[in-house]
């Protein structure tokens, strides 16, 4: 039995009321969407919160729609709905695939895309009970001073593990955050009133597993916007895990290829997750693949070289449970699978 620590629960029904509740409750406040990540972390005393602001009653944060050329997904849309949406399957196939392989069926009914984007990092030394962590003397992410992954490390390298984030990188998603400054922040010069800021998804993360986001805890994700992609857009997400369900990824690779009418690759992108605290983009992907035509010897040679080159920048660390060498060896395999699934 794992009890939750005590906190006060706020149940707003509008975004404005949620922002007000968060601003009034002080720094130890968290938004809770489906709760499938936050609740285990609270139960393990990995996160401390005096106030939770539930987003469950805010209807405006749910749903999938087109706004001009953009596909807009509300952060409270369940992963099940994202995976089964024809609009998402058509416009951002890799995202639909990734949403469909997060955890197990119950987590996907309950868990939301917003919660997935904002998921905490994972490490075998931290996602444990308080008792377990105490026996180890804790670690620098929470309550301790040492990292058990990198000896002498000064920065947490817990792994970014949200399946949806790699596809969101490849489609160039924009995240819209809204916030209201706390009285202390206003006293320190922050502007009053609701602030809205769009953040390109590849600018969301920093290389610190203790908190790997560049947005604050009081900032509410209100929209996930995916720009229109060309007609020849192809996407794929490949996930490595031990069991076919429930497990977090051991490695995740999203690939994007856009083909022109003649079948020539005009845009290529490959992004890896679960190697470090932030997603890793394989920068060589466009150099290798753009201009190639799938099915030709030139494409085959370029793909083989890309898989080889990628292993130099995509380096698995012993941060999550599982065989690190296996994860490393699977990097080129998953990249090849992801690219081939696009063509």
């Amino acid at each position: 039995m794992l009890r939750l620590p005590t906190f006060e629960l706020h149940k707003p029904t509008t975004v404005a009321a949620a922002l007000e509740a968060a601003a009034a409750s002080g720094p130890a406040t968290r938004f809770v969407a489906g709760g499938t990540d936050l609740l285990p972390n609270l139960k393990h005393e990995m996160i401390e919160a005096d106030h939770l602001v539930s987003l469950a009653g805010i209807e405006s944060l749910r749903g999938i729609r087109l706004d001009g050329d953009d596909l807009v997904i509300g952060p409270m849309t369940s992963l099940t709905d994202v995976a089964s949406s024809e609009l998402v399957q058509e416009r951002a196939p890799a995202l639909a695939q990734a949403a469909g392989v997060v955890a197990g069926p119950q987590h996907r009914n309950q868990g939301t895309l917003g919660g997935n984007v904002m998921l905490d990092t994972r490490c075998q030394w931290i996602n444990q009970s308080y008792f377990w962590r105490s026996a180890l003397g804790f670690c620098l992410k929470k309550d301790g001073t040492e990292c058990h992954v990198i000896e002498g490390g000064k920065r947490c390298v817990a792994a970014v593990s949200n399946d949806s984030i790699a596809p969101l990188y490849t489609v160039g998603a924009k995240l819209v955050f809204q916030s209201l400054a706390t009285p202390e922040m206003i006293a320190a010069g922050a502007p009053e009133g609701v602030q809205t800021r769009p953040v390109p998804v590849d600018a969301l993360f920093k290389a610190d597993g203790a908190y790997n986001k560049k947005v604050g805890l009081q900032e509410l994700l209100t929209e996930i916007r995916i720009p229109a992609l060309p007609a020849g857009h192809r996407g794929s997400y490949q996930k490595l895990r031990l069991r076919g369900s429930i497990d977090f990824p051991q490695l995740g690779i999203a690939a994007r290829l856009d083909l022109d009418e003649a079948g020539v690759i005009v845009h290529a992108d490959v992004v890896a997750i679960v190697v470090a605290a932030r997603p890793v983009r394989v920068k060589k992907a466009p150099d290798q693949l753009v201009g190639q035509t799938p099915g030709t010897p030139g494409f085959e040679a370029a793909l083989a070289e890309l898989c080889d080159l990628a292993t130099r920048s995509v380096k698995a660390l012993p941060n999550i449970p599982g065989d690190t060498e296996w994860r490393q060896r699977m990097v080129p395999v998953l990249i090849e699978d992801a690219i081939r699934a696009c063509v």
């Binding site: 489906g34 709760g35 499938t36 609740l39 939770l52 099940t80 955890a103 119950q106 009914n109 309950q110």
Partner: peptide
């Protein structure tokens, strides 16, 4: 009690969810 096993599954609006992770 932390989302790993499904023993606490209940239907919420007809869909299976985990009661141990639902406030």
């Amino acid at each position: 009690d932390k989302g790993d096993c499904g023993a606490c599954t209940v239907l919420v609006d007809g869909k299976p969810e985990l009661a141990c992770l639902l406030l």
